[in-house]
């Protein structure tokens, strides 16, 4: 099986979906001739032309809103926000419109749009090229939010997002783009949106996380294995709506749960995961649920010292795991 990078999996999924269905098209800033500032749409302009790989004016609300209009008509638009940080001007379109179109029309209209955006830090991107924005959207029924960790998951979940009958936010970790490589089948496949995935079986402690942090947890788990600590790792993959059954099962399996997120700690995805566990797993728990996340400051600073301080990394995850195992 070919080994490709995380971002190549994005491009491959888009190309295959555009080949499969003429109603699929991409739109965004610099997605056409330039092939995206990260090169996520590299080669698509040459293959599919300017009409299906549409360079738009620099205006995020229009990118989302025009995509929503096309989706209501029956197209399958894939809109790109150049950075997740720049999705903010489009929030009204996403929350007031995309999320509510099916509901408010009593199922008469629907909005099958996919909105992709690179998120996450550790790339010297400072406050406005590093943020995790999933929590902004994660209490908006009608939306789905996918945040894959591996190239295999990227391809299967992005294809599923494009085919999904409802709006999907697809957040890609920009540091994972070239850092993370993995085996990806050349053939067509999809993965179910809304299903978490066990990335490592273990029996002593459970780590529940998503995105790049899955890899930090896997690295830390390998180290702890040498000390005889056996770590179970659940990758949420879809952070909204959450896979409650998988969370309850993973938490109950070891009774000791560490939740990891790169986002600010308060009010994030893992806060909801913690609530699900406390509602359902009281008698299975052997330790208080632990959260490892970014500090509650507006976003991560540019300076390398402060950026490093903000970011979670394998060492921080390993330390938190060890403390929990020893509880």
């Amino acid at each position: 099986m070919p080994v490709i990078s995380y971002i190549q999996a994005v491009t491959q999924a888009l190309r295959e979906e555009m080949q499969r269905d003429e109603k699929v098209f991409v739109l965004g800033e610099d997605v056409g001739k330039r092939g995206g500032v990260f090169r996520a749409t590299d080669g698509l302009y040459d293959e599919f032309g300017a009409d299906r790989v549409l360079d738009t004016p620099l205006a995020e609300s229009a990118i989302a809103g025009v995509g929503i209009g096309a989706a209501m008509y029956g197209m399958r638009p894939v809109a790109e926000m150049q950075f997740a940080d720049f999705i903010m001007p489009a929030v009204n379109q996403i929350i007031s419109e995309a999320a509510k179109i099916r509901y408010r029309s009593n199922n008469d209209w629907s909005c099958p749009i996919t909105i992709r955006a690179p998120y996450g830090g550790g790339v010297h991107g400072a406050l406005y090229h590093s943020q995790s924005v999933e929590a902004v959207f994660a209490n908006q029924p009608g939306l789905k939010i996918v945040m894959p960790s591996t190239p295999y998951d990227v391809k299967g979940l992005l294809k599923a997002a494009v085919r999904d009958p409802d709006p999907v936010l697809f957040f890609e970790h920009k540091r994972a783009y070239r850092l993370i490589k993995g085996e990806v089948p050349e053939e067509d496949y999809t993965l179910p949106i809304g299903k978490a995935d066990i990335k490592r079986e273990g029996s002593d402690i459970t780590v529940i996380t998503y995105g790049l942090a899955v890899h930090f947890a896997l690295q830390a788990a390998d180290k702890l294995a040498e000390e005889g600590i056996d770590v179970h790792i659940l990758d949420l993959r879809t952070v909204y709506p959450l896979d409650r059954e998988a969370i309850i099962e993973a938490a109950s399996k070891t009774g000791k749960v560490l939740l990891v997120s790169e986002d600010n700690k308060e009010g994030g995805i893992i806060s909801e995961v913690s609530a699900i566990i406390s509602e359902n797993c009281l008698f299975e728990l052997d330790a208080p649920v632990q959260r490892l996340a970014g500090p509650d400051v507006p976003a991560m600073p540019y300076s390398p010292t402060m950026e490093k301080y903000f970011m979670i990394n394998p060492d921080k995850v390993e330390k938190a795991m060890r403390e929990l195992a020893e509880f």
């Binding site: 025009v66 096309a70 197209m75």
Partner: peptide
């Protein structure tokens, strides 16, 4: 307004 533009684009 942008929805009308998206429908026309489609």
């Amino acid at each position: 307004v942008p929805h009308a533009v998206g429908i026309a684009l489609a």
